[in-house]
Design a protein around this nucleic acid. Structure first.
Ligand SMILES: NC(=O)c1ccc[n+]([C@@H]2O[C@H](COP(=O)([O-])OP(=O)(O)OC[C@H]3O[C@@H](n4cnc5c(N)ncnc54)[C@H](O)[C@@H]3O)[C@@H](O)[C@H]2O)c1
Ligand SMILES: NC(=O)c1ccc[n+]([C@@H]2O[C@H](COP(=O)([O-])OP(=O)(O)OC[C@H]3O[C@@H](n4cnc5c(N)ncnc54)[C@H](O)[C@@H]3O)[C@@H](O)[C@H]2O)c1
Lengths: 286, 286
DNA sequence: ATGTCTTTGTGAACGCGTGCACAAAGATTG
DNA sequence: CAATCTTTGTGCACGCGTTCACAAAGACAT
């Protein structure tokens, strides 16, 4: 996920819970699809299924927006599309700049889903002089020197950062100084920004690591289940992925032992899914 | 953000809370940086600052892994790097396939951050016959026909979907049938998957919409504050930056407004940042 | 050893988010 | 108009996550 937003009491602002806000785009997408099929109304049950959420949750979410449904019937699709769009601020135009037009930045620039929802790529900015003027997605790349001018002249308040991690903080500072108050950061770094500026991050690496964690846990459970017959029931497969935990020098032991030998790793690895996967070196970042 | 995971009791699994798991990669990144600078130990305070979280939260997170710190001193960097890596399952090799080698897929394939953490791109798969054999990121693109074989032979359990939305569900089904149990989905669709399969999604459009919501709210508050004297007095650099907003591009073509009630739309638009227009309607979400 | 100082690990309180369950509201039918 | 059926809107309870605050643990100095 991309999470983010610098901490904030969240209170105040009479408004909608953060969790609900994060789901509104999901509802909107489902509703738009229904709208295109000229479906006039939907029940909370149907819409919830389409959006992949619980229907009670959906109704509660909508209740924060007001009472837009009709009991016994459901919600008017078109009306709800409008209400959610308005709530999200999509009834206005949001110029956006993308900074760092490399592999990812170029892909983003070419992405059609941008303009589909009221967002407009106002400019593409890169520090590489060789890129300046070069057209990407039918739009000339502009040099970082003009960043402030571009932000200011276009009234940009949302910036997307797709530069290398090392440049991200500095780029964010320039964007903010120029007037940007919302940043979507693709660089794998924690951005430090002043209050009042929202930052959301998208980090591929983190997503994969979270998946790997669950994958490992699943493999562990599988191994445990296979090992002790098949009487799973509710075994509560301890987190430590089984073996490796207890074995490794217990807690409180002298920490100085830098890298420990990957003990029971073999077990978990062997328990992997089907497929002749013999090797498995203990690859480790350092 | 990317959020996701199909619902799940979440409880059970004697283990680490989901929220903690999501932060471990963050800690790991900060620790890796310290490790590269040969810093031997860090306090929870320092590390928390580097990771952008609360120090109490960090300590509690680590407490789920065990007692790896030394009171009065802090945490041994190398040791912690190892423990977290092990917990996340990064001490083993995770082959990954990317399906849909278009703009985004190609960018992902070229991304170096993949292999940096134990993930290895095992194959690039696309349905376009014209792509087959073409090298992307030094690796020949393979055709979808061989998807099952590729998954099976490489023991792949993590798949990345970067196809158009329309193809995502079907692709996920093929991946799952072939043995994949974790999916990172970049297509803007809700994937329906069986229990036991983890799905995380990254949706640029949703992130932007969430930012737009907060941006709009900020603009509303600002307008309200400006209307009632200038009682703010809170350092804030006053994001406005004085852009000739209202006049220029502004809210050019009304996007979806053509629909139902033409109510507060004008007000919302007028409340955009900067514009020192006199009016100031107390823009408020209904 | 003893005392002081630093920092961890965690008990406890609190707030947010989720989901159940149901009364109320309105449509629909007779 | 009354009865019935459908679906919303929400009160309530529960569990997870966050944060505070502090006792205990250990390092370090004397
Ligand atoms: N490519 C991916 O799939 C992917 C996935 C996840 C995260 N990321 C992250 O996104 C960022 C970009 O990735 P990429 O693969 O496109 O890298 P890239 O090297 O292809 O592109 C980076 C671009 O940023 C430009 N740049 C460098 N410093 C700059 C500055 N100070 N101001 C403006 N532009 C600057 C460079 O000229 C280059 O064009 C990296 O931080 C990467 O870690 C990429
Ligand atoms: N480009 C971005 O920055 C971006 C950002 C967010 C989300 N997305 C989403 O990511 C997805 C890919 O975006 P893109 O810009 O790379 O699109 P694209 O059209 O450039 O690439 C899509 C690729 O998928 C391939 N494909 C189509 N059907 C397939 C199938 N059934 N099996 C395998 N491959 C198939 C196509 O041949 C093509 O190469 C889209 O769903 C898009 O909405 C893209």
């Amino acid at each position: 996920m991309a999470t983010g937003r610098t901490h904030r009491p969240a209170t105040r602002s009479r408004g909608i819970p953060e969790a609900t806000v994060a789901r509104l785009p999901l509802y909107l997408r489902a509703l738009t699809a229904l709208s295109e099929r000229s479906v006039p109304t939907v029940s909370s049950e149907e819409l919830a299924a389409a959006a992949g959420v619980n229907s009670a949750k959906l109704r509660k979410d909508f209740s924060y927006l007001g009472s837009y449904g009709t009991r016994g019937v459901g919600y008017d699709v078109e009306y709800l599309v409008y209400q959610i769009s308005r709530e999200l601020g999509l009834t206005q135009d949001w110029p956006v700049v993308i900074v760092g037009i490399g592999n990812l930045g170029a892909a983003l620039a070419n992405y059609g889903g941008f303009s589909a929802r009221g967002f407009r790529v106002a400019a593409l900015i890169d520090a590489d002089p060789a890129m300046a003027g070069k057209p990407v997605a039918g739009m000339p790349v502009q040099h970082t020197d003009d960043l402030e001018k571009i932000i200011s002249e276009n009234g940009v308040s949302i910036g997307v950062i797709a530069t290398p991690a090392g440049a991200a903080q500095q780029v964010s500072e320039r964007l903010i100084a120029a007037g940007v108050t919302s940043i979507l950061n693709f660089a794998p770094t924690v951005l430090s920004v002043p209050d009042g500026v929202d930052v959301r991050k998208v980090d591929l690496s983190i997503e994969l690591q979270i998946l790997a964690f669950h994958e490992q846990r699943k493999a562990g459970e599988e191994a445990a289940a296979a090992g002790s017959a098949d009487a799973d029931a509710d075994g509560a497969p301890d987190a430590g992925a089984g073996a490796p935990d207890g074995a490794g020098a217990g807690t409180g032991a002298a920490p100085a032992a830098a890298l420990m030998p990957p003990a029971g790793r073999a077990a978990a690895a062997a328990a992997r899914k089907g497929g002749p996967d013999g090797d498995v070196p203990a690859v480790m970042p350092a």
